[in-house]
Design a protein around this nucleic acid. Structure first.
Length: 281
DNA sequence: ATGACTCAATGCTTGAGA
């Protein structure tokens, strides 16, 4: 299975580019973020004509997530358990949730398309919302892997965190003044790894950015950030046979400001189950 | 060239992105 994640920055503005990429690269499962439309506005038919089923989750022109898949998607969820919402400058379990997470199972993999809140600026209510959201995601991950340790779980998406200094090449993003690189955000990212997840792309693609601001010639100058990730459980990580960051998708006419991140998975087929450890006896 | 921001909306300016 070839699994990709891509913050598309409006699915309607560049549906042709997205489908061209998916078909050209033989993507089986494409997790999208920032579709920037309501679910009913998603261009389902164009994806269906290209051979993809789509599950979309969006409420407005902001955020929104979706998963396209050549195989049928099952057990769709429009939020992970405990995901906080945001209302009137505060986050919390009782505030209305935004369309920032969609989960589905395909080919034995539990795939999440995640759009972590931006944070805006240090100390902004959205910054605390971001940290709370990440904390809830960590808790969901811990609980899931405690009950189903052999689950092939993939948390994919735009995490809006540059985990190391090498992941930030944008001179406007400065420690002490900017989000994405602050210690609490990096600690939240590390907590996901402590919960049992691994960045499955970095071992195979050690350097490179996934996002470049549209402003200030950031792309020609290669002043980008690495903020889009595929985090996998042990069962997922051991199935990885390849990975790529498609930098070329930032070129040409009307690109997204993010590029696709891809992994190849060699998952045990159901008939191989006899060779695998039994979890439920 | 990879080139000086882009997208969506009860739109002609504003909010969000990071």
């Amino acid at each position: 299975m070839r699994l990709a994640t891509w913050n598309v920055n409006s699915v309607r503005a560049r549906v042709d580019r997205i489908i061209d990429f998916a078909v050209r690269e033989s993507i089986d499962v494409l997790a999208m973020q920032e579709i920037k439309c309501k679910a009913e506005q998603f261009p389902f038919e164009m994806f269906e004509d290209a051979g993809y089923h789509v599950e979309a989750h969006g409420f407005s022109q902001w955020n929104g997530v979706a998963i396209a898949s050549r195989e049928q998607l099952t057990d769709v969820e429009h939020a992970f358990p405990g995901m906080p919402g945001f209302e009137k400058d505060h986050a919390g379990p009782d505030a209305p949730q935004e369309a920032r997470a969609i989960g589905a199972t395909v080919g034995g993999v539990r795939v999440w398309s995640l759009y972590v809140p931006n944070g805006r600026s240090l100390g902004d209510p959205h910054y605390f919302y971001k940290l709370e959201w990440l904390s809830a995601l960590q808790q969901y991950t811990s609980e899931t892997l405690a009950t189903t340790p052999d689950l092939a779980l993939a948390l994919t998406g735009d995490f809006n965190i540059a985990p190391t200094d090498a992941d930030n090449g944008d001179p406007a993003v400065v420690q002490g003044f900017a989000t994405h690189i602050s210690p609490p955000e990096r600690e939240a990212f590390a907590a996901l790894e402590s919960a049992g997840l691994t960045d499955v792309v970095r071992p195979l693609v050690p350097t490179g950015f996934t996002y470049w601001d549209y402003k200030q010639l950031r792309f020609p100058r290669n002043e980008g950030m690495r903020i889009d990730f595929i985090l996998g459980s042990h069962a997922l990580a051991t199935a990885v046979t390849g990975a790529a960051i498609h930098r070329n998708e930032r070129k040409g006419k009307a690109p997204s400001d993010h590029v696709p991140v891809v992994v190849d998975l060699d998952l045990a087929s159901p008939e191989d189950d006899d060779d695998r450890p039994m979890i439920f006896g």
